[in-house]
């Protein structure tokens, strides 16, 4: 960028999203692996519990959501890890832009390549577990509201552990308990819909969680990043 006044926070955030998306497309395999993991975990369930349609149908929302949680968690390191390793993160931290906005931009880019595919794959995997068609809308909507929360909470966890060697398992220990509400509301939206019940309650609560995470997680992750960068 040429010398002169620095761009505003929004312009900087947009540039960061573009840059991260480009980087993700250059490393497609890394992005695809968690999705493959998502599919494989769901495939393992019928092999473990048996192929009976009734059992699988009852379990489908929970299984898809648990697998989505695990896949989201596996992909989390991608938010900050490579930028931490090559020093780009320090450049972001000393830039004149508010770090929380930049964190939000990075989470958005990461969600576009890791969360959105989970939303799209969800109904396919649900169908493979005999989830009835009327539950698909609630499953997709729930994933659409819930996976950004997973990325936002996860960003705090990654920011805290990015300086730790072999932080992967530690990250799961930190982040998975915090995912409990998303799992509960997401899975019950889909199972309510499968049972023909009202889904507005859990979906509204998921939306509330998203609003809360959007407002609180970026500053928390920014503070955690500053601590990790020391």
């Amino acid at each position: 960028m040429s010398a002169g006044a620095p761009p505003g926070p929004l312009a900087a955030a947009a540039a960061l999203v573009r840059r991260d998306l480009t980087l993700f497309f250059r490393r497609r395999a890394e992005v695809l692996n968690p999705l493959l993991f998502f599919v494989i975990v769901v495939t393992l369930v019928p092999l473990g519990v048996g192929p009976e349609a009734a059992t699988l149908r009852a379990m489908a929302p929970g299984v898809v959501w648990v697998a989505a949680l695990l896949a989201a968690m596996l992909s989390l390191e991608g938010i900050f890890r490579s930028d931490y390793d090559d020093g780009a993160l320090e450049q972001l931290a000393i830039s004149p832009q508010p770090l929380a906005v930049l964190v939000l931009a990075k989470v958005l880019a990461h969600w576009l390549v890791s969360g959105l595919p989970l939303v799209l794959l969800g109904p396919v995997l649900g169908a493979s577990l005999f989830l009835p068609g009327r539950a698909m809308g609630a499953l997709v909507l729930g994933l659409l509201l819930g996976t950004p929360v997973l990325s936002l909470i996860g960003a705090i966890g990654v920011a805290l552990t990015v300086g730790v060697r072999r932080g992967g398992v530690l990250l799961s220990l930190l982040v998975l308990p915090l995912y409990v509400p998303v799992l509960i509301f997401g899975a019950s939206a889909a199972s309510n819909a499968a049972a023909g019940l009202d889904v507005s309650g859990p979906l509204a609560l998921l939306g509330a969680l998203l609003a809360l995470a959007l407002s609180l997680a970026p500053p928390a992750a920014a503070a955690a990043l500053r601590i990790s960068l020391g």
Binding site: I156, L160, L174, V180, F185, L212, L216, A220, A224, I227
Partner: peptide, 23 residues
Amino acid sequence: KAARATSVLALVGVVDIPIIHYS
């Protein structure tokens, strides 16, 4: 560094604990 990182985690936990409890 450990003290400050764990403090951030504890604060996130304090926000999340009531949500976890009620959910």
